[in-house]
Write a protein that binds this DNA or RNA. Structure first.
Lengths: 232, 232
DNA sequence: AGGTACTGAATTGTTGAACAATCCTGCAAG
DNA sequence: CTTGCAGGATTGTTCAACAATTCAGTACCT
């Protein structure tokens, strides 16, 4: 019986690396990247014709990619009108922070039972943010910031929660485009992040949870204010 | 200025009712229904040819529907091999309960600030389960049970969390098919659900939270055991 | 001027066919 | 019992066509 050979189990995990991706998925990947980078600002219309010609893919393939991104809420689809890069409303922003609070606070409660590497991963993202700030790469600071929060969510050890958080973060970045000064928006959070990791390393989990919660509420308030200001 | 007329805002909400759905979405709806009902058991292969002929839709449209359900994790897509109804592993079941615990426990913490109608909605689902049990409609008991948990999640007042929970529940129902006796599996939870609603009505939120947590862990253990038993 | 109805162009929704790439099955050979 | 090799079947992707719908402009009426 060769089915129980030890190397078989080893290789089964590598199966995913072998899975080539379809064109539609790759198209979705590049669109997703452009959207969260801001190259395709919220409200932009993506017509099947132009986008298909630009990327040299057929309409059908492009439509498959659109469906994926619509499902991720990065695009909205209006029947017979086409797809548009999502425009976040204030309600959306508030709901996203509501979701984040629940996810991240719930996850940080697992910090007590988490593996040391997971805590280390959180710390590493703060370091990345510090590094980026030192080199004045403010957009990278924002990216590291988001990865910090994903690392916190990862404390729950749940692939599904990780995936959900990935989507929430991607959607939230749509809203960050309203912040005209990335430095002023992202920089202050570095010290807060470090505060959280310090508490985590010291095992003061309850305190870390509280700090995270106020942190998120503060960030929400700031973003909502920027939104209202822009509406005028 | 007619833009500020009071009825304008009223009607904008009805816009969604007007949005006809695409064929792909309707196809996805019927497939989703068949899957969670068990008509298409886990592992079933859905070939584009047969399914397309059966539903009288073109391959392209069908593929769009498949993409949607793959994204919801109800189907898995293997490159150049086709789509299959997902087979939940034990790991999946455990991760789903991990996710549920975080979502539901987090949501029930908002019970203190929730509107009375929301509590009433939770109670109503227990009633529905009791009613279904009295008429020995055990599958409906299971459905009411799931709706009970969705009502709990709704306490968080977050459309995104509601959507996430909807997906989690749909995915979890894939796992319920291993339970050969729906009555023995679903019936015992009715009394637990009532216990939770009683605590909620009496304002003992902390106690309700604890009960919910043990509830979920117990259900998980039961399902996991059934899974392992079946693997033999 | 301001609102209404209509027309034609452009875009999306959906289907069908075509071809390449890949997988699966069965069979023959070692 | 494994390996290698057809042949058929299925999927991946593109293209072309047509129906349904939206959009922009225009003429019309009051």
């Amino acid at each position: 019986m060769t089915a129980t050979d030890p190397w078989v189990e080893l290789l089964t995990g590598d199966r995913s690396l072998l899975d080539r991706t379809s064109t539609a998925e790759r198209v979705a990947d590049v669109l997703r990247q452009r959207i969260i980078e801001g190259g395709l600002p919220p409200g932009t219309r993506l017509s099947e014709g132009s986008a298909g010609r630009a990327l040299s893919v057929s309409r059908n393939t492009l439509r498959e990619a659109f469906r994926l991104l619509v499902h991720e809420r990065l695009l909205v689809h209006e029947f017979h009108r086409g797809v548009f890069v999502r425009v976040l409303s204030v309600d959306d922003v508030q709901d996203l922070y509501r979701t984040r609070r629940l996810l991240e606070v719930g996850a940080i409660r697992c910090a007590g039972t988490a593996a040391p590497e997971q805590i280390a991963a959180v710390v590493a993202e703060v370091q990345a943010a510090v590094q980026a700030a030192a080199e004045e790469r403010w957009l990278d600071v924002g990216t590291a910031n988001m990865r910090f929060h994903q690392a916190i969510t990862a404390l729950a050890c749940s692939p599904r929660l990780d995936e959900i958080m990935r989507q929430v973060v991607a959607e939230l970045r749509l809203g960050f485009h309203v912040m005209s000064r990335p430095r002023e928006f992202h920089e202050p959070y570095i010290v807060l992040n470090r505060g959280i990791t310090d508490l985590l390393s010291r095992g003061e989990f309850g305190e870390a949870e509280r700090l995270l919660e106020t942190y998120l509420s503060e960030a929400e308030a700031q973003l909502v204010q920027a939104y209202r200001q822009m509406a005028r």
